[in-house]
Simulated assay, not measured.
Amino acid sequence: MNLPKVLADLVTAQNEFNSVAYANCFSETAEVFDEGKTHSGRKAIEVWIDDSNKKYQSVMEPLSITHDGSTSILSAKCSGKFEGSPLVLQFHFDIEDGLIQRLRVTG
C-alpha cells in the first residue's frame, strides 16, 4: 500500500509508541477528534496520544486508503488492550503541506 509519507510516519510512530514522533506528524494548529473529544494543537495531541498509548497500547495495521476530496481515509486494524480488540477503525485525515491538519477517528 502506498501511503503518503506523513501517514507512513504516523503509523510507524504509533506502532513504536513514540508520542513525540506521532505529534510531529501534525501541524502546530491541528485538531484530533477521537472518543468524543477534540484535542487542539500539537502539544495537546502529544499528551492525548501519550495517554492513549499508556492506556491501550494500540498498534495499527493499515488495510486500505481512499481519498474523498481533500480527505484521506485510512482503514486500519487496531489491536491493543481494549474491549473488542482488534477493531477496524477509519482515520479521516486532512493533510496540507505534508502535515496533518485534522484527524477524525471513526468505527
Rank of each mutant, 00 (worst) to 15 (best):
E46D: 11
A44W: 07
L7W: 02
M1F: 08
H67P: 00
A30M: 01
S19W: 00
I45G: 01
C78K: 02
F33T: 10
A8G: 03
V47D: 15
W48D: 08
S70F: 09
S79P: 04
H92E: 14
C78M: 07
H67Y: 12
S79V: 01
F33C: 04
I100G: 06
G98Q: 12
V11T: 06
I73T: 08
D9L: 02
T66E: 15
V88W: 11
E96R: 15
C25F: 06
S19V: 00
S40L: 14
M60A: 02
K55N: 04
P62I: 08
T71C: 13
W48M: 14
C78D: 00
G69I: 13
L89P: 03
I95C: 14
Y22F: 15
T71Y: 05
A13I: 07
K54S: 11
Y56K: 09
S72D: 14
M1Q: 01
T29S: 13
T38C: 11
V32Y: 15
A30C: 04
A13D: 02
Q14K: 03
C25G: 04
P62S: 10
L10H: 02
V20G: 05
K5L: 13
L103D: 04
L103Q: 10
T66G: 15
C25D: 04
E35V: 07
F17E: 02
N53G: 01
E28W: 09
E28R: 15
W48H: 14
D9P: 00
R104Q: 12
V20K: 13
D51M: 01
A76D: 05
V11L: 07
L87M: 12
L89M: 11
S72A: 14
G41P: 12
Q101C: 11
I95N: 10
M60G: 00
Q57M: 02
L103M: 14
S85R: 10
E46V: 03
G107H: 13
S27H: 08
D51Y: 05
V105W: 01
N15V: 01
S40N: 13
P62E: 05
F17S: 04
T71R: 14
I49A: 04
L63T: 09
N24R: 06
L87H: 07
G80M: 02
D51R: 03
V59Y: 00
N24G: 04
A30V: 03
L99C: 13
L7V: 13
A21M: 04
